[in-house]
């Protein structure tokens, strides 16, 4: 299992296009106006970002009402602390960071990710001793599957630990770089890789257990 625990992030598969893997900085001009607490700029940022923040909160599994509360508290904190914004990360990265802490403090159900986990064993059991697929993933029926995956993914997400859910959603839903996600979650790239590995395999197993992976059929 050490291999999994040590799993490093090797972001060599581009799931949807290449994004430079680095901490992006905010535009200096915008940073200056944020620090000066320019109300027009801050209000514009509220307008620009609340849609995505709300979407991330909902994907993290919050009810509509709770998500609105968290987004509101996040933006109010951002407005109150605007003078501290240093521009070394993008505004959205800063917002996600605030929001993650708000979500945790408003709910108070921190959970831990232990060094090893049942999902690691489940994944490992699929491979033969020489590392080939023993019990391979079954081929989904592409079209019917997309709909069913969408229908079930919310429930399967709810079964993940909070940190895995946060990592998975941030990695998939917005165009954050690896370093930005790490900053938001306050983890190392290695930790992030493990969180994503467990989140994705947990979701995949959850869907497969519900028969959503579909038929065992023809070649890809």
């Amino acid at each position: 299992m050490t291999g999994v625990v040590e799993a490093r992030i090797v972001p060599s598969i581009n799931f949807h296009g290449v994004t430079p893997d680095r901490m992006m900085r905010e535009d200096p001009l915008l940073t200056a106006r944020i620090r000066a607490r320019d109300p027009l700029v801050l209000q514009q940022l509220v307008r620009e970002h609340i849609g995505m923040l709300l979407r991330v909160c909902r994907s993290w599994g919050m009810s509509a009402d709770f998500a609105e509360d968290v987004v509101q508290e996040t933006m109010l904190t951002f407005i109150a602390r605007a003078a501290d914004f240093d521009g070394r990360s993008r505004v959205r990265t800063w917002l996600y960071g605030i929001m993650r802490k708000k979500a945790a403090s408003l709910r108070r159900t921190a959970d831990r990710d232990d060094e090893t986990d049942a999902i690691d064993q489940v994944v490992e059991s699929r491979f033969t001793a020489i590392g080939r697929w023993g019990r391979g993933p079954r081929a989904p029926d592409a079209r019917a599957d997309a709909q069913r995956v969408r229908a079930w993914i919310g429930q399967c997400l709810a079964g993940l630990t909070e940190r895995r859910r946060h990592a998975f959603v941030l990695a998939e839903i917005d165009d954050l770089t690896t370093d930005e996600i790490c900053r938001v979650l306050d983890v190392t790239p290695g930790n992030l890789g493990v969180l994503l590995f467990r989140a994705r395999n947990g979701l995949r197993e959850c869907l497969e257990a519900r028969g959503i992976s579909g038929r065992h059929d023809a070649d890809v």
Binding site: P11, F15, V18, T19, P20, T178, F197, R200
Partner: peptide, 14 residues
């Protein structure tokens, strides 16, 4: 499988 499942959208090692 490990690399695919732990990947982010960022660029990586060529």
């Amino acid at each position: 499988a490990r690399r695919v499942a732990s990947a982010t959208q960022g660029g990586g090692e060529p």
